[in-house]
């Protein structure tokens, strides 16, 4: 079902045009990469504060309040350009193990942020000025730093086709993780 839908999506004229364009695709990809500096960059600075590693004299809510709108702008640009890139080659990304790993860790990073905001951040007024925030805030910061590092690394590696389904033979675990059709060589 998903495969048929993504196969159809990849054959739409806009998807083909985007993939084959000389400048639009590279511009979208460049915007996606450069926005890392804004989105992941501001997230990293906030996480360094939450873990108590840096900005120890700056109130934590300055980051979660004043800087967060900028993180959000970065997130919107990241998501919009990321969806466009996916749209340019849906089936290829769907069967790319780095893409799959990235999506899983993205969900974890999102869940971590949601738990932080619904949890310990509600009482931020109590520990705002503490150089070392409470343990659950430090954990949220550390999980976020780790998750985004994995997302960035996996994201960069999506470009490489080492484990693509049409490059058989691959180890069984690769084919399973990439969702390659088993059996015939050159499955996909």
């Amino acid at each position: 079902m998903i495969e048929r839908f993504l196969g159809w999506l990849g054959e739409t004229s806009w998807s083909v045009a985007l993939l084959e364009s000389l400048y639009v695709w590279p511009l979208v990809e460049s915007t996606h990469v450069l926005t890392l500096g804004l989105f992941v960059g501001t997230t990293v600075m906030m996480d360094l504060r939450l873990t108590g590693i840096a900005f120890r004299k700056v109130p934590a809510t300055a980051f979660t309040g004043r800087l967060l709108p900028w993180t959000r702008i970065g997130f919107v640009i990241m998501t919009a350009t990321g969806l466009l890139l996916f749209y340019s080659q849906p089936l290829r990304y769907y069967h790319n193990i780095f893409f799959r790993a990235k999506v899983v860790v993205l969900v974890l990073a999102g869940a971590n942020a949601a738990i932080f905001h619904a949890g310990v951040h509600r009482s931020a007024g109590d520990w705002d000025e503490d150089a070392t925030p409470p343990r659950s805030a430090r954990i949220a910061g550390a999980v976020s730093l780790t998750a985004w590092a994995v997302v960035v690394i996996a994201g960069r590696l999506i470009a490489y086709n080492w484990f693509d389904c049409d490059l058989q033979p691959q180890p069984a675990w690769v084919n399973r993780m990439a969702g390659c059709g088993v059996g015939a060589a050159g499955a996909e």
């Binding site: 890392l36 992941v40 960059g41 501001t42 600075m45 300055a62 900028w70 960035v152 690394i153």
Partner: peptide, 25 residues
């Protein structure tokens, strides 16, 4: 790219502030 993220963050926090935005307090 990991370096780019950290560099971006370290620059943006201060540059936004210089522009009168972000961590204005």
């Amino acid at each position: 790219l990991i370096g780019l993220c950290v560099l971006g963050g370290a620059l943006v926090v201060v540059d936004l502030r210089l522009l009168g935005l972000g961590l204005t307090s």
